[in-house]
Amino acid sequence: MMKKFMALLLVCCMTLVLFSGCTQTKTEEKFPAEAITLVVNYGGGGSTDLSARALAKAAEASLGVPVTIENKSGGSGSTGVIEVQNSKNDGYTIGTLTYSPLAILPYQMTVPYTIDDFDFIMGYGEYRYGIAVKSDSPYNTIEDLVNAARENGGMAFSASGYPQPFAMQKIAEKEDVIFNYVPFSSGSDAVTAVLGGHVEATVGIISSVVPFLETGELKLLASASSKRWDEAPDVETLEELGYEDASIQSYVGLGAPAGISEENLKILREAFAKAFEDQEFQDLMVKLQLPASYISGDEYKTLCQEGFEANKVLLENVTQ
């Protein structure tokens, strides 16, 4: 008797366990109904990570659900991008999609994705670059650098990976001189190489150059972005100096795996556009020296695609 009872109990329990597997299927529910995961394609503590965290926090208010950050670093930023590509396109997984793994990395290694594998939510920050030399250097203009390179048969400059070197390469192309790109592993390493006098010039990211402009150890010769630097408004951009197309565009933005439903994409786009306006987020971007700049998802996608096409020519020259 007891045995039978126990067996029955067991069957009941097992049936319950089985049923518990059948969660309510999402039908016509309002999106989002549960937490959204935001995959960050770089490690914790970097400017991409910190900006995404602030954005996620601000977006929680209008989405009404938590937005949790998951760091998937590695593979030069591609690991996180692959993670987004492979996740379900239900809108519950989105990620940071930065310019370099989308538009540059495919020329350097085999990646399983293309730009079309993603629907873009927005671009929210523009990395800004400039060409700088040591303040006691004899060179005061880009023209001086070009002349020196012509006389000495070349000049070495430091930078921390593409797209930065494009700026110097385009100048070199136009002026028919040689600038030797010496890669360093981070922006601050590239700057210290100039400070130590090991290379003549650097194409640096704004955050690693500005402190040394203020101490007077570096001088900025040109802004390598489409705009002048707020920190050095008198220094002209490369385009103003007559080097068209030499400015570097590099963005950080958000996206989801391709094929996400129109309504959900719209909800995400609106929520994050609103989060972009959040004062705390804007303040953090100033602190991170990552200029906040909003472009729509479609604009960002076009920017990546155009960059991808343009980089083909440049990078094929390099690796030969």
């Binding site: 503590g45 970097g46 981070s186 601050s188 500005v210 101490t215 602190k287 020296q289």
Partner: peptide, 23 residues
């Protein structure tokens, strides 16, 4: 300039507070 991976993460912590490690 961060000396190792830990120091690199510390930079982020400084920046959250609005401070750029450096001169």
């Amino acid at each position: 300039v961060p000396g190792d991976t830990v120091a690199a993460i510390l930079i982020g912590a400084f920046m959250i507070q609005g401070l750029t490690p450096g001169p």
